[in-house]
Every structure is written in structure tokens, then in C-alpha cells.
Design a protein around this nucleic acid. Sequence first.
DNA 1: CGGTGTGTTGAG
DNA 2: TCAACACACCGG
Length: 366
Amino acid sequence: MDSMSCIDESTTSTDSFPPAAPAADTPSKLPAPPAVKLYRMGSGGSVVSDSDNVIGVETESRKLPSSKYKGVVPQPNGRWGAQIYEKHHRVWLGTFNEEAEAARAYDIAARRFRGRDAVTNFKSPAADGERDCQSDAESAFLEAHSKAEIVDMLRKHTYEEELEQSKRRFHLSGVDGDGNRNGTGQNDDAGKKTREVLFEKAVTPSDVGKLNRLVIPKQHAEKHFPLPTSSSNGNGTSSTKGVLMNFEDVTGKVWRFRYSYWNSSQSYVLTKGWSRFVKEKNLRAGDVVSFERSTGPDRQLYIDCKIRSEPEKNPVQVVRLFGVDILSAPTPPPNDVVPVCGGKRSRDRDLFTLGCSKKQMIINAL
DNA sequence: CGGTGTGTTGAG
DNA sequence: TCAACACACCGG
């Protein structure tokens, strides 16, 4: 047993606080020296000192270019990996196209794992006594999530996005940023219920095909719609039955879907009832379906879809929801835009499948 | 098959 | 604690 696994949340706030920031630093306030060079050639073997590399001798056969950033390691394909260590275990933070991106990921993880005073590549909020709203919001955001969640976001490159959403919510309800509803946060404006976007998915051809099923990305499914767990039944047949879930759409209509886990494909799906939704909403591949939930005590679920295709005729569509106008226009609304299929790829293998694999620290928290 | 990220080693 | 390196394994 051993542990393993699972980055536990020990640090929820108070804990790790290095006595004093590495002080060393001198007061040089360096607000944010973009490229701090920490020359660390690490150990390992050959250092690739380009420094004195004579001319461009640089035989390409050179090993990999080491990074000037902490926690960043080169990948064979020219990309950059980010990693952080904790308790003798390495926690992989994902791979990135840009070296600085990886460095940024490391910084975020470092702050979540080691506190604000953690040594980072770029900015260090608390360090210079700055403390502006931004950093406060980010700190709150970090605190509100488990290490596992943060790592998850980093690996999937969704951190920035989630942080932004969190900030929005923060301002709206004056409560903490993310998933934690706070006692009060129910409806603040008269009768206007606030909702949080759980996740969105650009539907695939199969999602709108004849299979009568919508695959819910595992990460989201497990986070927001944890199935009654299959409870028991040790034979892997997890909850084969599934459960019925109700979602309200923008018109107030309630849709009921069967939600279950398919062992065969190891995926979470919405089945019974889904095809009707597809038909009625005339969903097509590429459209985005959004799953939301009331932040109020009722935790009402909502489903909404954003047609992504060409605006056939109607330029804009305004729908009302509890008196709130929501427009799903062809152009992405300023607010929660979903980069989803944006530029980079977001590979997401099971990532922290609860089945903590070997030694790597995995997560589980929740 | 390309690429990720894990296994592992050794320096600091 | 950390980066370098090698490569098993995974997903396309």
C-alpha cells in the first residue's frame, strides 16, 4: 500500500509555509522579471552548455536543450514538459509548446503546493507585497481547488479558463470562486438565480448520430456527475443501470436523460432521452452543449446548446431564462467562451484515474 | 507511429 | 529536490 498516491490535500492553506521566503533575494523588487535566468544545468549528464558554444558548431545531434526555467524539461519533440516534486514524487504537469507556458504551469503548481512564497519562475504575488485583486482572486481560486484539480487543469491547459470563470463568479456572487457554494450564495438578485457552468462539450458526430447517446468526458463526468458509484459489486460492472437526471433548458422545458457508465467503452454517457434532445434542438456536430447548475441550494441542472454552425438566417437568438436574456449568437459571447477546440490540443488520458498508478502521485482528492 | 510522461539515475 | 535521459506504453 503505501500510499501512494494521491496527492493529498495536506496543504490547504496553512500548511506549508516556508518560514521565510527565500529571502535571499534581495529586495530587488523585480516585479516580474520575465526571464529570470536560473542557470541550472542540472545534473544529470551532459550539460548542454551552449554558452560557449563556439560558433554554431551546435551539432544538431546535441542532446536536448535544457530549459532556463525551473520545473521545465525538454521533450524529444521540441515541446516542453512541466513537473514539480513533492514528497519524493514527481507530479507531471503536462507538456506545452512554449517553454514559458510550461514555466507558468510550474509556477501555478508551485504556489498551490508550496504556498505563495514558493519560488517561481515569474511573478510571485505575495512576495513583493503587491496583493492586488487579481492575485487575491487567483489565490482564492487555488485554495478552492485540490492539488489534483489544479494539476488536472494544467495538464489539460484549462487553468486560465477556469480561473477566469471563477473570477466572474466571484464578482457576481461575492463568494468564493468556484465550486464552493457558500451558504449565502444562492440567489442574489431578486429572483435571478445564478448558475455555474459545469462544463461544455462540442458534440461529435456520434453524439448527434443514431447512437442516441452523448459521451460525457470522463473528467467532467466524474467531477460533476459522480455516479452512485457502482457501488460495490466488485465485478467491475459498475453501475450498469445508471440514473435518471433532469435538466432544464432555456425555455424551461425539462429533459430527462438516463445517465450511466458504459464499461465496454469505459465512458460516461447520457442515453435514453438524448436523441429527442438532439432532434428538437437540431443539434449538429460541432455545436456546443453546456451543462450548468444552479448555485442555489436546489442545485438544479440546466442544459443549453450553442449552435456553432453557420448562422443560417437568424443572426442572433435571444432566449430567456428566468428573465435573463441569454443570447446564443454565432459569435461567441464574451463571457465564457469555450476554447474547446481552440488551438491547442488537449490530450487527456485518464490522467488521474483514481487508480493511482504506481508511484506517481495521483490524485484523488475531492 | 509519434509523443507523453514514467522509470530511474545522479548531482546539488 | 531537481533535471537529464531512456523508453514503455498509449492514443491516434
